[in-house]
Amino acid sequence: MSRKLMDIWVGFFVVIGFSALLFLALRVGNAASANLGETYTLKAKFDNIGGLKVRGPVKSAGVVVGRIAAISLDPDAYEAVVTMRVNARYHFPRDTYASILTSGLLGEQYVGLDVGGDERMLKAGESFSRTQSAVVLEKLIGQFMLNKASEGAPNNK
């Protein structure tokens, strides 16, 4: 086999190998959509973040508007501090409610933003003042059992 022909076949092999990688990156992965464009940072403090993860989505009215950049624990208040990068196109009023919600019954957890009516908007680096923590199933069951017990107590007398 001539060297020229071999070069052509190997070149063909390399080209389809790289186009497979490109297909994986753009069509299978999220290399294209992970880029939110210009962003700014917002923070929120929660008593409990449940199973929230870094890079999880931030949604408003179900639309992804940002990603979670970092999660840390405030050493003084023992609260979780969630830092989010939000697309610079979107601005949220100061009284926006940030809550940790779950998509579906067993889906991933995300930060949902319920927009308030304040005229003034949150600026970069500011925090949501009103937050709601993740629902922890064990606590919910514990509360339910407690309610049942206190309901049942008067009947026993």
Binding site: F13, V14, F23
Partner: peptide, 15 residues
């Protein structure tokens, strides 16, 4: 040099 190209082709065609 061939192995990563073959593996990415494998994943892409598998998908």
């Amino acid at each position: 040099l061939s192995m990563p190209l073959l593996a990415s082709l494998f994943s892409a065609v598998g998908v």
